Every structure is written in C-alpha cells, then in structure tokens.
Measured scan of single mutants.
Amino acid sequence: ASVAVIAAGTQGNIFATSALRSMRFLQILRMVRMDRRGGTWKLLGSVVYAHSKELITAWYIGFLVLIFASFLVYLAEKDANSDFSSYADSLWWGTITLTTIGYGDKTPHTWLGRVLAAGFALLGISFFALPAGILGSGFALKVQEQHRQKHFEKRRMPAANLIQAAWRLYSTDMSRAYLTATWYYYDSILPSFRELALLFEHVQRARNGGLRPLEVRRAPVPDGAPSRYPPVATCHRPGSTSFCPGESSRMGIKDRIRMGSSQRRTGPSKQHLAPPTMPTSPSSEQVGEATSPTKVQKSWSFNDRTRFRASLRLKPRTSAEDAPSEEVAEEKSYQCELTVDDIMPAVKTVIRSIRILKFLVAKRKFKETLRPYDVKDVIEQYSAGHLDMLGRIKSLQTRVDQIVGRGPGDRKAREKGDKGPSDAEVVDEISMMGRVVKVEKQVQSIEHKLDLLLGFYSRCLRSGTSASLGAVQVPLFDPDITSDYHSPVDHEDISVSAQTLSISRSVSTNMD
C-alpha cells in the first residue's frame, strides 16, 4: 500500500485504499475450498504439459491467421470504412471474430473485405477451437489413466503375492535341489530340531500304542527276528556328554522351557516337584528354603522380579524323601529317536503342500481383483469380450473355409453374387472337401465294379455249361463312374476274359 501511495501521489490514498479493500473479495475463495484444490491444478498442469506441443502448434497457427486476416482486412477497409482507421481496430475485429465472440461493433463494408473476412474466419476458427478439443481429450485420457492406475494399485499386491507364491512353489520342487534360497528361508522360521524330535516322538508313541520308545526297546525280541524299528541315535539331556547330531552343545531358554513342560507332561506320578524357592531380598537368592510367592517384596526391581519368575519355571527341586529312583531318572531322560535326515523329507513334503495351498489362494485372490467394480468397468469388459468373440468367430470361419475348400476369392465371389465353382473344380482343390469328394467317387466306382462281377458270377453259375458261358453278354464299365481312378482293366474288353475262362473250363471238362 505504501508503494502504491508513493507512486500515485497524494491523490492515490483513496485509490490504494479501495484497491486493498477490493482484495477482500479473495476471501470468498476460501468458501469454495480453492486453497485446498491442489490436486485439480496439478491435474491441469499435467494435461497442459503432456499436450504442450499440440497446444503450441495450434496457438501458433491461429496467431498467424489472426495477424494476416487483420492486416488484409485493414488494407481493404481503411479507405471505405471509418471503423478500420488503424491496424489496432482491425486487430480487435480479428480477435473478436476468430474467437467466435462477434460483438458486431465493427464489420467490413466492401465486398473484398467481406470475402477476406469469411475466408479467414473459416480457416482461423478451426485453429482457435483446437486447444479446447486438445485439453478436453487430454483430461479424458488423464482421468482414464488415473482410473486404471487405481485399479492397478488394487491389483499390484495380489499380483506380487501370486508371483511370489508361484516362485516358491517352483523352487520347493524336490527335483530342483539346486534352488536353496527358499529352503534357507524356511530353515530360519521353522522350530528347532528338538521340537521336531518331540513332535515325531509323540507320533511314534501313538503308533506304538502308547508305549515310549524306551519301553519298546525293553520289550523282549526273539533271536533272529528283525527289529520293528531301525537303530537310531540316542540323545540324552544337555547335561550328559552325548547330543543329537546337528545340535549345539548350548541350550537356549526356549529349549529349557519346552524341556520343563515336556517333563511335566510325562505324568505327576513319576515326577514330584517341590515348592519353588524364593529369594528373600533382591540381592541374594536362598535356594535351600522354600517360601511362598506372596511374600515377594514390593520394592524389588523389574529385573529381580523377572529373575524370580524364571526361577519359578526353570529351577524345580525335589524333596529328599520323594527323590526318584535311578530307573525313573533313566525313563525321564530325553530320548531322541530320530535324526535330521529322517525328519527333513517329511518336513519338505509338508512345506510343499503348504506352498501349493498358498499358490491356489493367491491365484483366487488375484482373480477376484479382475472383477469389474462399476458400470464403466462392466461396459469396458463387455466390449473387450465382444471384440475377442468376433476375433474367435473370424478365426473359426477361416478354418471352416479351409476345411470346406472355400477360399478368400470364392468368398468374395459369393458376396458379389457370382456363380460358384463347379464340382470338377471342387474335386481338384487341395482341401478337405476335395479329398472327401475324391474318396467318395472312388468308393462308388469300386462298388459298381463289384456289383458287375457278382452279377457275372451268378449268371455263370446258373448257366452251368461252357457254351452258355461264352454266350453271356458282359456289360462294359461306364468310364464316368470311375472318377479319376483309372484301372488298367477298364480299357480292355471283358469278353476276352470271358473267352479265356470258357476255354479253360472246356479243357478241364475234356480232361475229366
């Protein structure tokens, strides 16, 4: 405001104040949320940038038409019409005319000016109207692209899951042992070998009828009888010197917790746990005396209480009078009846079946994303299906024409109403129809010849004498029936064969 007042002088105070007050009108834009329509302006900018070359070309040609039209109309009207006294007036008329506004304040009066105005109007309006069409088509394409992008975003994750499931299904095939990355992934998420051994031990116990592997080994086996189970490696608790092959000598807290839970599941009659010990102070733990958990001091820290809870689970003690015997301790020893080589084939089979199920689920979810969402998608899918159906029908028609023997030239002739090819031409065609016709002709010829021969033979049998045999009239074959199959017997006289037959029969009768 200060700059405006200084620039306008003393009389500019009122002007500056009114100008600043008129800017209050811009507050109405906040009512229509114009300040939060950044996406709309961004869309407009992207459309203009995408079609910038077309817009520049249309505007450039339109500007050239405007300059030439205004100049030529000015030359034609400057002497006869006072409205075109300057080139600026003519340029104003050209702008209003070519933009199809047409105020009518300035019009050419001479015939030359009117002809020039009409010609440049028809030429220039087309170029001035091009930017509107370019922007409209650009907006339509952009909206369609955003629509497809939205659908693509919805299909991206199911497609990625389907590709991942397909690759993992491919890589978990037993015949592709060189693909090891997927197996490394499952090695990292699978439970430890100790848990798998416990699982298979329970399965084997159920197969043995509820007997433990130790009891199965204690059962008497006759001499020479084959053992029911192959000899396997035996594993004891981590306190002993022997372990399962492939295990580490260090046992983690999870393994100890699972070991304690498995020992508690063996039965309360074979294992008696004394009350857990509780320390009397955060600094020292008295293991010899058993106290109640309700006497825990409230001033303990979080670490002390955590250690106390761990001691409740991981440090059970047995009383002296209830101490288990050596046999019970041997039964409680952890027996590992299986090795990694025995378990891994079954584990890989389970993983393979899981990968198949996940692949089928991913495939079903991806197919669900291909379903249409709204009416536009339904129409688009219907149009695509219609085009596909037309293509299939056209391909089927082409194959039928190839089989029947109607080529493209014959199809055009039928469409024009011309006469089709004759039967002889159809026979000569190298097509399925021509071959079928040729075979039918040959079969008819053979059938006719057989009928003639059978009739001749029956007449010979009825006559009974050589004289009557020679008097029999043998009809000749019709050459038209034989089609294109020409037998060497067709052109010979059958009477010669009949005479030869009669001579042979007379000779045979004389010999008798």
Rank of each mutant, 00 (worst) to 15 (best):
E321A: 11
R462C: 08
I354T: 02
N510T: 07
V439A: 05
V203L: 03
G239A: 15
R237G: 04
T500P: 15
I379V: 08
G252A: 11
L273V: 08
S395N: 03
R256S: 03
Q381P: 05
A219T: 13
A177S: 04
S281P: 15
A219E: 00
D410H: 01
G455D: 02
R228S: 07
S248C: 11
A329V: 07
Y485H: 08
E447G: 11
R414Q: 10
L198F: 06
T398N: 09
A467D: 11
A320V: 10
R309Q: 06
E331K: 08
M433I: 04
S463T: 12
L454M: 08
L211V: 04
M174T: 08
A310V: 06
L314R: 13
A274P: 08
S353A: 04
R258P: 03
L396M: 02
E337G: 08
E440V: 05
W183G: 14
D187Y: 12
D388Y: 15
H448R: 08
F193L: 13
P475A: 13
L338V: 04
L198V: 02
R305G: 14
M174R: 06
F308Y: 01
S431C: 08
T182A: 13
L387R: 15
D490N: 01
R411M: 02
D377E: 15
S508G: 07
S248N: 03
I351N: 05
F359C: 07
A165G: 05
S284T: 10
P222S: 09
V507A: 11
V426E: 12
I343T: 08
H486Q: 10
P324S: 14
I430N: 02
L338F: 05
Q442E: 03
V404M: 07
S422C: 12
K412T: 04
S487R: 15
G407W: 12
P245A: 02
M433T: 06
S248I: 04
G252C: 03
P226T: 01
S269T: 05
V347L: 06
D451G: 10
D451V: 13
E337D: 04
K315I: 14
V221G: 04
Q397H: 06
D322N: 10
Y373N: 03
L461M: 09
A329T: 15
L190H: 01
F302I: 14
P268L: 12
A197S: 09
E201G: 12
T349A: 12
G470C: 13
K416M: 05
S240T: 10
N303T: 12
S261N: 10
S506P: 15
Q442K: 04
L211R: 07
S301R: 14
R237Q: 03
D342Y: 00
D490V: 09
M344V: 14
E380V: 03
M511R: 12
K358M: 02
I379S: 06
C336S: 08
P245L: 03
C235S: 05
A320T: 09
A320D: 06
F308C: 08
T277A: 07
D223V: 09
Q444P: 03
V350F: 03
K358Q: 02
M432I: 12
C235Y: 08
P293L: 09
A206P: 08
S431T: 01
Q263K: 05
D490Y: 15
D418G: 06
V496D: 05
A225S: 08
M432V: 14
V439L: 05
S299N: 06
S284N: 05
E201D: 05
L312M: 03
T318N: 15
E285D: 02
E337V: 11
A274E: 02
P222H: 11
S395I: 05
Y485C: 14
D418A: 10
N510H: 09
P275R: 08
G409A: 13
M344T: 05
A310S: 02
P345R: 04
E429A: 01
I354F: 08
G464S: 15
S262C: 05
L312V: 05
R309P: 06
E326K: 12
